[in-house]
């Protein structure tokens, strides 16, 4: 087990260093490491690294890690390996809010980010309120509330897009396909802070989350405060996905696929699924983003499009191969 973790972390660091070197200006991974250690390298390389590549790779790592972790948390929350963070309305909320900002207010990138986050958190709050009966959050009701809210939000988005002019339509459409091209240091700091703190909080809860898989009563009999765990999970997912969606737009399939990969390799205990999904989500989004910005260079593919394009069939193949073990 220890060697697996060591290998994953090393792979992540190696991929980060390589990804920072790949692009229009090629930088050798050794030079990347050298520059990261504060040693003098080619000034052009240094400028490219510190202003473009490093923030972008870090943003990909934090957003991807946040999505992977949120996927694992959501699947644990719904006790269903096919659950996705979108189920509690987080993406729909962000999408509606961004559609309003783009179509009605012609918002710039910052306003779009703020509205995406606000929309995500607000809609999840609404789902929570509807999904709560007699002070208790029931999984079935929560799921249906999420489905209803998703449908309403998407209908509202459709209405807004019908009203939209071509520029707003294009801006919104690209947002839904996700991109990490807007990476800045303040953005990296924000996502890093939120995802980092969420991870620390989530990793503490692995025992109670495992107990919740046995059912609410069984978990409660083991002394787990089920309602409190559930609310914390929803809150952490809303924050991590919300901040990711705000800075990178919609990026599909990481939250759904990554926890599966970890479970197939290391088993379903949250003790391994949570940190594993965090690391693997980061790893996959860095690879996807590096592919997105180099595959059709000088043009850039939307990274969300890429993760879904490859994630979908890959997921399908996994299901076929491992359906016996699921």
């Amino acid at each position: 087990m220890k060697t697996t973790w060591l290998a994953t972390v090393s792979a992540l660091l190696l991929v980060m260093a390589s990804a920072a070197g790949i692009g229009a200006v090629h930088i050798h991974p050794a030079d990347v490491l050298w520059a990261l250690l504060g040693q003098p390298v080619d000034p052009l390389h240094e400028a490219v690294l510190w202003t473009l590549r490093v923030p972008r790779v870090l943003l990909a790592a934090f957003v991807g890690g946040g999505l992977g972790l949120s996927g694992a948390l959501t699947q644990g929350l719904f006790r269903n390996p096919l659950a996705d963070p979108g189920l509690i309305g987080v993406s729909a909320g962000a999408a509606l809010s961004v559609a309003i900002a783009t179509v009605l207010f012609d918002a710039g990138p910052t306003a779009k980010a703020v509205s995406a986050f606000a929309g995500a958190v607000a809609v999840v709050g609404g789902v929570l309120k509807v999904g709560k009966m007699d002070g208790e959050m029931r999984i079935g009701v929560l799921l249906l509330a999420g489905v209803a809210v998703n449908a309403i939000a998407m209908a509202a988005v459709g209405l807004l897009l019908w009203l939209a002019d071509d520029a707003a339509l294009r801006s919104y459409t690209f947002w839904t396909m996700g991109s990490l091209s807007g990476a800045t240091w303040p953005g990296v700091g924000l996502v890093g802070g939120v995802v980092g703190l969420s991870s620390i909080a989530a990793l503490q809860m692995h025992g109670p989350l495992d107990a919740c898989l046995l059912g609410d009563d069984a978990a409660a009999h083991l002394g787990v405060r089920v309602q409190r765990v559930r609310q914390s999970v929803v809150g952490l997912v809303a924050l991590s996905v919300g901040v990711g969606v705000a800075l990178a737009g919609m990026i599909g399939f990481i939250g759904l696929v990554v926890p599966h990969l970890v479970r197939l390799g290391l088993g379903p205990s949250h003790r391994v699924v949570l940190p594993g999904s965090l690391l693997l989500g980061a790893l996959l989004l860095i690879i996807a983003d590096t592919t997105a910005r180099t595959a059709a260079a000088p043009a850039e593919l939307p990274v969300g499009l890429l993760t879904t394009l490859f994630g979908g069939p890959f997921f399908f193949a996994l299901l076929r191969r491992y359906r016996g073990a699921l």
């Binding site: 390996p81 109670p208 495992d210 107990a211 046995l214 009999h221 083991l222 002394g223 379903p268 699921l326």
Partner: peptide
């Protein structure tokens, strides 16, 4: 949870968790 244990009729566990991990959950309290 350290004072009393309850064996309920059904559990809904649908994840392929190893038996040892399921039993170990009894140590949670």
């Amino acid at each position: 949870a350290r004072r009393r244990a309850v064996l309920t009729q059904q559990s809904v566990l649908s994840f392929p968790m190893p038996v040892a991990d399921v039993v170990r959950l009894g140590r949670l309290p």
